[in-house]
C-alpha cells in the first residue's frame, strides 16, 4: 500500500509563496516524477510530503490518513537525498540498519534485511566500509539501500543522480527503474532533467513556480502538451515556437518539434540560414535562423553536412503542429 493524496497544498516561507495550491493523487505502485526548472518548488513539495517541512494549508494524506501533523519517521516514508546524507561515522551496514535498530527490531532481523538490500544493490562487499571509503555511485546505492531496508510505503527521491557523472547516471537510472519493478513500491522522484523524467516515470507532474502545469504519462505530455511551458519542457531538443500569423495559421504561436521538421531542397515553407551544426553521430542537430521566427532547431537522423550561413528550406507536416493562443494555452 502507498497511495498519496495532496489536496490544495500550499507552502509559504514568510511572505513568499513557494507552493501555490497543488492537488495530486499518486496511486499505489506508481512511479511519479516531479519535473520542473530549478527553484520551482519540487524539493519543497517533496519535503512537505516527507514531513520535513510544515504544510501552510491543505492536506497531505497517505493511504487515506491525514499526516499533516505526523512526524516524518511515523509516515512510513523513506527519502533519498541529493547529497546522499549518509551517516559519516557509521559503516554501510549500520547506515542501512539504523532506522530498524531505532525502532527496536531484533538484531537478526536487521541483519537479514540489510543483507537482502545489499544483495539487491550489489553492496555485499562494501558492508563494513564507511561512506568516506566509497565512490559517489556506491554512496548513492547505500542511500537507496537505507531507504529499501525500512520497507516504506512511499519512496521519495530528490534529484538522486545529479551528483553522478553521465555514464553512472544512466546506469543508476536503470537500476532505480529495475528496483521499482522488483519492489512494486510507490515512488516519487524529483528531477529537473526531463530525460530522467521521460525514461523513469509512469506519470509526470510538470511544475512551474509552485503550480502544477500538467500531469500525465510521458508520451501523453509529449504528444499532447497543455501549454507552451510543458511543450517546451518535455522533449529534447526543445520544441520550436514559430510565429503563427507569419505562417498564415490561426494561432499566436505554433509549436513544432525539431524531429518533425524536414529539409526540402528549394520548395520548403520556410527559408532559413544555418547558424550552427551539432554532429552527434546517430543524429545531427542543425540550428538555423529565420528573421521572423528566430532560432529554429532541426533534428536529422544520421550524418549530414551543412556549411554555416548556407540557406536551406524547411518543411513541416501540418498534422504535427501544436497551436497555442497568446497566453501560451493550447488551442488544438
Amino acid at each position: 500500500m502507498g497511495t498519496l493524496n495532496l489536496t490544495k497544498v500550499t507552502k509559504s516561507f514568510g511572505a513568499t509563496d513557494v507552493i501555490k495550491g497543488v492537488d495530486l493523487t499518486v496511486n499505489d505502485g506508481e512511479f511519479c516524477v516531479f519535473v520542473g526548472p530549478s527553484g520551482c518548488g519540487k524539493s519543497t513539495l517533496l519535503r512537505m510530503i516527507a514531513g520535513l517541512e510544515d504544510v501552510s494549508s491543505g492536506d497531505v494524506m497517505i493511504d487515506g490518513r491525514r499526516v499533516n501533523d505526523v512526524a516524518p519517521a511515523k509516515r512510513e516514508i523513506a527519502m533519498v537525498f541529493q547529497s546522499y546524507a549518509l551517516y559519516p561515522h557509521l559503516t554501510v551496514r549500520d547506515n542501512m540498519g539504523l532506522a530498524l535498530k531505532q525502532a527496536g527490531v531484533p538484531k537478526a532481523e536487521i541483519a537479514q534485511a540489510t543483507d537482502k538490500a545489499a544483495a539487491m544493490l550489489s553492496l555485499d562487499a562494501l558492508m563494513e566500509r564507511r561512506p568516506a571509503e566509497l565512490s559517489g555511485g556506491q554512496r548513492q546505492r547505500v542511500a537507496i539501500g537505507r531507504a529499501i531496508v525500512r520497507r516504506p510505503k512511499l519512496f521519495l527521491f530528490d534529484e538522486p543522480l545529479s551528483n553522478l557523472d553521465a555514464a553512472l547516471r544512466v546506469q543508476t537510472r536503470i537500476e532505480i527503474a529495475r528496483l521499482h519493478r522488483d519492489l512494486g513500491a510507490t515512488m516519487i522522484y524529483v528531477t529537473h532533467d526531463q530525460v530522467e523524467a521521460m525514461t523513469l516515470a509512469d506519470r509526470i507532474v510538470v511544475l512551474r513556480a509552485g503550480r502544477v502545469e500538467q500531469v500525465g504519462a510521458p508520451m501523453e505530455l509529449y504528444n499532447n502538451p497543455a501549454n507552451t511551458f510543458v511543450a517546451g519542457f518535455i522533449g529534447s531538443p526543445q520544441m520550436n515556437f514559430l510565429n503563427g500569423e507569419a505562417l498564415g495559421l490561426r494561432a499566436a504561436t505554433v509549436g513544432v518539434r525539431p524531429e518533425h521538421l524536414t529539409l526540402d531542397r528549394g520548395a520548403g515553407k520556410l527559408v532559413a540560414k544555418v547558424s550552427h551544426l551539432e554532429k552527434l553521430g546517430g543524429e545531427t542537430l542543425v540550428y538555423v535562423v529565420n528573421p521572423t521566427h528566430g532560432l529554429i532547431t532541426i533534428r536529422l537522423f544520421g550524418e549530414h553536412e551543412f556549411a554555416v550561413d548556407e540557406e536551406i528550406s524547411l518543411n513541416y507536416d501540418e498534422n504535427k503542429l501544436f497551436f497555442f493562443d497568446e497566453d501560451g494555452q493550447r488551442l488544438y
Partner: peptide, 27 residues
C-alpha cells in the same frame, strides 16, 4: 553537520536526545 544528514536521521526516526547521542555527538 549538513542539514540533510540530520533530516535523514529524522526520517529514520532518530530524533531528540537519541539523535544527539547517535548522530551529533560522534560527529
Amino acid at each position: 553537520i549538513p542539514d540533510e544528514v540530520i533530516e535523514a536521521a529524522e526520517m529514520d526516526g532518530v530524533t531528540g536526545w537519541s539523535q544527539f547521542w547517535k548522530i551529533k555527538l560522534p560527529l
